[in-house]
């Protein structure tokens, strides 16, 4: 019994260390953003002496941060939605049908994962100019959706493969059409995989900078992270102001996570039939 208690204490110590390490950088952001540059000089790591919103006021000056936020929400939302839809269809085909070249296709699609998006920028820019889509949501959504396809397809195909044939056979006997099998059986049963893929996609699109900056050039079309990246170099010497910018960048996802956390973990666990 003593041994169990000891190991329990050990585990608590490990977990608490983990929590401290995970939270320190965030603590640093949230205490620094209220400080003035002068205060930061002598009080780097402590709590701010007063809660000054001066840095935020300066950040909001002339910048259309709210507009950027809306753009980010629209682009991330649609990219994730379409990417999951297209990937799940493709995954369904690869997991459930036999056709020549199937495994080659799967390998080809998934090996695109290793391709750095940076190299696609110039060829894609040319295509988008031809289509006249520069500075529109469509260009960013089409590109983000495409870039996210390999990882989503990979994840969903594997998950679809793990769903038992018996279920599908039963559905076929009940007279379900292929389409019904896809959206009534495959999709609901794959919720954990879909949630995982959606989350990975969301995080990538939300935080992406290079493509956002190049394809959405006008100030009205900018998304949040590329917009905030303009602060880079501008205020590098003013660390509290930089941290206020960092806070603006992370707060939206932070709020979404804290609100959706319960559903997210539920989505991951529930429906895992296998």
């Amino acid at each position: 019994m003593k041994k169990i208690a000891l190991s329990r204490i050990m585990k608590q110590i490990i977990m608490i260390t983990m929590v401290v390490i995970a939270l320190v950088p965030i603590y640093y952001v949230f205490v620094t953003m209220f400080k003035s540059p002068d205060e930061y000089l002598f009080n780097k790591w402590g709590l701010p002496l007063e809660l000054s919103l001066e840095n935020f006021k300066r950040l909001m000056e002339g910048e259309t941060i709210f507009r950027w936020l809306i753009n980010s929400l629209i682009i991330s939302g649609f990219s994730v939605l379409i990417s999951i839809l297209v990937a799940s269809m493709m995954g369904f085909a690869i997991a459930r049908f036999d056709f020549p070249g199937k495994s080659a296709l799967f390998v080809a699609v998934t090996s695109l994962l290793v391709l750095s998006p940076a190299v696609l920028v110039i060829p894609l820019f040319k295509s988008m100019v031809k289509l006249g889509l520069i500075n529109t949501y469509y260009s960013a959504i089409i590109i983000y959706t495409g870039i996210m396809l390999p990882i989503s397809t990979y994840l969903l195909t594997n998950f679809f493969k793990s769903i038992h044939n018996d279920i599908i056979d039963a559905a076929l006997i009940d007279g379900c059409s292929l389409f019904q099998i896809y959206y009534r059986i495959m999709i609901p049963l794959s919720m954990p995989a879909i949630v995982t893929a959606a989350l990975t996609n969301w995080l990538y699109v939300w935080n992406e900078i290079l493509i956002g900056l190049i394809f959405l050039q006008s100030d009205k079309m900018r998304t949040l992270m590329p917009g905030l990246s303009l602060f880079k170099g501008k205020y590098t010497t003013n660390i509290p102001l930089t941290m206020a910018g960092v806070a603006v960048a992370i707060i939206p996802t932070f709020v979404i996570y804290l609100m959706g956390q319960r559903y997210f973990v539920k989505g991951l666990t529930e429906g895992a039939v296998k």
Binding site: S229, A249, I250, Q261
Partner: peptide, 13 residues
């Protein structure tokens, strides 16, 4: 808490 670092932007952190 353990999941919080995952959601933060690399560029910011």
């Amino acid at each position: 808490i353990i999941f919080i670092p995952v959601i933060l932007a690399v560029a910011a952190m």
